[in-house]
Write a protein that binds this DNA or RNA. Structure first.
Length: 367
DNA sequence: AAATCGGGCAACCGCGCGCAG
DNA sequence: CCTGCGCGCGGTTGCCCGATT
């Protein structure tokens, strides 16, 4: 069923025909808005859909496991034509699949130079260490493992490594000994409630309440090495983001990644130390972020920190801190990402933060 | 031998962002 | 300026298959 309506722009009226996906036009172009562009005399000057055409006809695409025949078609097409526009690949390759499905199949299975054998001990150790550094940013982790896809690494983590860590007494989310976390939870539980005068502040963020005692750190305040580790952690994130394919294409994207880093910091228990005296403009944001918990994406990282503050630390808009951090990062950007990671992995000070100290060596995943 | 359970993994889903039209 | 797709990403689902009862 077509539902016409007319929009008058500055130059000419647009006549739209909205149609339902299941109408008679569905399958001949997908969902969307079909339009006629009319000039002032009411004559047609252009016709077509608004925006890009849909990638595929959702109703007629095949789902589920790929057959060897489909693999062969996709492989033959990509080896002859490359992997340009995935939307057109199914049709050109003679496949009844969504372009997105083709891309996934290719990148996770058919792509050349992929390793299909099981993970080695070295790869296992690297994944654990990188996960401690980066959280569940599987694409970044996979970039450091030649021949492995983010899906491979993610599945291996979820099915093997996280269980292995748990069995060995390490919380896979925080990479801290579970005993330490339990002790921290117990300590928090007996703390007095925030004063009534600060009722507008989140009780989960005593930092917002001047009357409340300071946050109880999981580490000592004077633990310089751990603070250094946090600083390096941010540098790794920043560099990896910049190194990631397409990341440098947009300043907005880079800014977005920095915000994600802030989320990452917010989830880290040790961030509470750095947030001992946050800029005033961050305190309200911290209460909001904390009251609603963590973002869905950030939750994949270090939930177990328990104490957080949004926007504190690096990657914020504070002019002074930003300038300071920028100056530090500029010098480090000259280094290659791989080299930086290699140095960090070999740095005992960093390993304290990334591998939860002595536990990692005890577990056989020392740095 | 059949039923059930659980691990592993491929694939799908949904979101954010950029960009084309 | 607005709409909606392409792409990349992380989270989740569900199928397959071997082990167990």
């Amino acid at each position: 069923m077509l539902l016409p309506c007319v929009h008058f722009s500055r130059f000419s009226p647009y006549m739209y025909y909205h149609y339902h996906p299941r109408s008679d036009l569905a399958g001949q172009g997908g969902t969307g808005v079909w339009c006629l562009v009319l000039d002032r005399k009411g004559e047609e000057t252009r016709r077509g859909s608004m925006g890009r055409p849909p990638c595929c006809d959702k109703a007629n695409v095949k789902k589920g496991l790929w057959t060897p025949e489909e693999d062969a078609k996709l492989l033959a097409y990509t080896s002859n034509h490359g992997t340009g526009n995935w939307t057109s690949v199914p049709q050109r390759a003679g496949l009844k699949r969504c372009g997105k499905s083709c891309r996934l199949r290719y990148t996770n299975y058919l792509r050349p130079n992929l390793k299909h054998e099981s993970f080695t001990q070295e790869e296992e150790e690297l994944i654990v260490t990188l996960h401690a550094m980066l959280g569940s940013r599987w694409s970044l982790i996979a970039n450091q493992l030649p021949g492995r896809t983010d899906n491979d690494v993610k599945n291996y983590w979820n099915t093997k490594l996280s269980k292995k860590l748990r069995q060995r007494g390490i919380d896979p989310l925080t990479h801290r000994p579970i005993a330490d976390l339990m002790q921290s939870i117990g300590t928090l539980a007996i703390r007095p409630p925030p004063a009534a005068a600060a009722s507008s502040s989140s009780p989960y963020f005593p930092i917002n309440n001047p009357a409340a005692p300071p946050p109880l750190p999981l580490l000592q305040d004077d633990d310089v090495s751990y603070h250094a580790a946090l600083q390096q952690k941010q540098e790794v994130i920043t560099l990896l983001d910049a190194d990631a394919p397409g990341a440098a294409a947009s300043p907005d994207h880079h800014h977005h990644q920095q915000l994600k880093w802030s989320d990452f910091l917010a989830d880290d228990a040790a961030a509470a130390l750095e947030a001992a005296a946050p800029p005033a403009q961050f305190q309200e944001a911290a209460a909001v972020a904390g009251g609603g918990g963590l973002s869905a994406r950030a939750c994949g990282g270090d939930i177990g920190g328990g104490v957080g503050i949004g926007g504190g630390g690096a990657g914020d808009d504070g002019a002074a801190s930003s300038a300071f951090i920028d100056a530090m990062l500029d010098s480090d950007r000259k280094m290659g990402v791989d080299q930086l990671i290699a140095e960090l992995l070999a740095d005992p000070a960093y390993c304290y933060g990334a591998c939860c100290g002595s536990s990692s060596s005890e577990m056989g995943w020392g740095c």
